[in-house]
Design a protein around this nucleic acid. Structure first.
Lengths: 213, 213
DNA sequence: CCTACCGATCGGTAGG
DNA sequence: CCTACCGATCGGTAGG
């Protein structure tokens, strides 16, 4: 009948068998990002997975642990993307391009957990909350160091306010979680390159040099 | 006894008598911004005002009406700040400076309601939700028009992607709600001027023109 | 993973 | 603005 070599009962390559734990994590990311942490009930979550509310507790220890894991995993993705860049010998403008590209890619590839990360971390209990604020400080420091490097090397304007420049860069890459649409016509790379061009060169047209024609 | 002209029993100028309705609105803005809409109970709210949960309903008609009013009031502030600027005859770069200053001022002067606005509008029921998305579109359009004006006038680079430029500007002014601290050493004007300088001129140091000394 | 249940708390109302 | 209450729903557990 059908080709005996056809692997019809093997999961498609893009659908590797996910552990139940992983499925719960994914659905929680989606629901928390769409409705918010407190507006999502454990029964909502269980319903989407075709099980009863109480059954979730065979796989997880509590609602907050789900939030902690989503937030921590997002934080680790940003870490992995940026900190390998710290000591790469690139000029500051090139390093900024690369950092923005990686940063935006993490946001774009994880829109749901990024949204949870930015909106729901305030609802963590003190321990996990403190971890996130510390993490945020290290990301801020990464971009401030990058700006300082650029000034030191003469690649960036000497009169930049380091903190404000870092804030401006962070605004651009973080705010993407509010408007980026993964299926659209802009890749994360397009956004990062466009943003980096505008940030590095400015919006204003260059003053026309007296043309020597 | 005391100077009869001294208005000692008149509320201080900075503490005008606020209606109970207004007090509820203020406390709700604070609690919703700190804890989120769904994590704030009507009893929390009443407790901060020294009353019982049920008593709130003598002044308001429901929890969501509070959220709607906070969000709508914030939207109206942005409107009032930006739309009076639409037809002002300023060059695009100057208009951008002014718009950013006004936009950031609205955020800075209303940190709590701005936070509620950006985080909680998704929890509105369909009618109010649609109003907010429409409003967001008009703000986007304002900045896109501004960028287009600048390109048309030759003030901005001709190769700008209008949508991305508008997004970058919006990122800068909106993200301020996450880090600005009203008591700090930066006024909204400082932030707006610094951001506008960086956006207009770029972070990169000008290429050294062969000095004609 | 289900059934059945726990105490706690929710937004909101009735009647005063 | 309070007391007392409503039905609904919450996160989580026991026992299987």
């Amino acid at each position: 009948m059908t080709d005996p070599a056809a692997p019809t009962d093997i999961p498609a390559a893009d659908l590797p068998a996910k552990s139940r734990r992983e499925q719960i994590h994914d659905v929680a990311s989606r629901l928390f990002s769409e409705r918010g942490y407190h507006a999502t009930s454990m029964r909502d979550l269980a319903g989407e997975l075709g099980m009863q509310g109480g059954s979730l507790y065979a796989h997880i220890s509590g609602k907050e642990d789900l939030l902690i894991e989503i937030v921590n995993r997002a934080a680790r993705q940003f870490d992995a993307a940026l900190f390998t860049l710290r000591d790469v010998p690139l000029a500051a403008d090139q390093k900024l391009r690369e950092a923005m590209q990686r940063h935006i890619r993490v946001v774009a590839d994880n829109m749901e957990s990024a949204t949870v990360f930015f909106h729901e971390w305030k609802h963590l209990s003190p321990g996990a909350y403190a971890q996130v604020t510390n993490w945020r400080d290290t990301i801020d420091a990464f971009y401030r160091d990058l700006v300082m490097q650029g000034i030191r090397e003469g690649v960036f304007r000497a009169d930049l306010d380091v903190k404000m420049a870092a804030n401006l860069i962070l605004s651009a890459v973080n705010w993407a979680y509010t408007w980026y649409r993964p299926g659209g016509n802009l890749t994360p790379r397009d956004v990062a390159e466009g943003y980096a061009d505008m940030l590095l060169l400015g919006l204003r047209a260059p003053v026309p040099q007296e043309a020597s024609s």
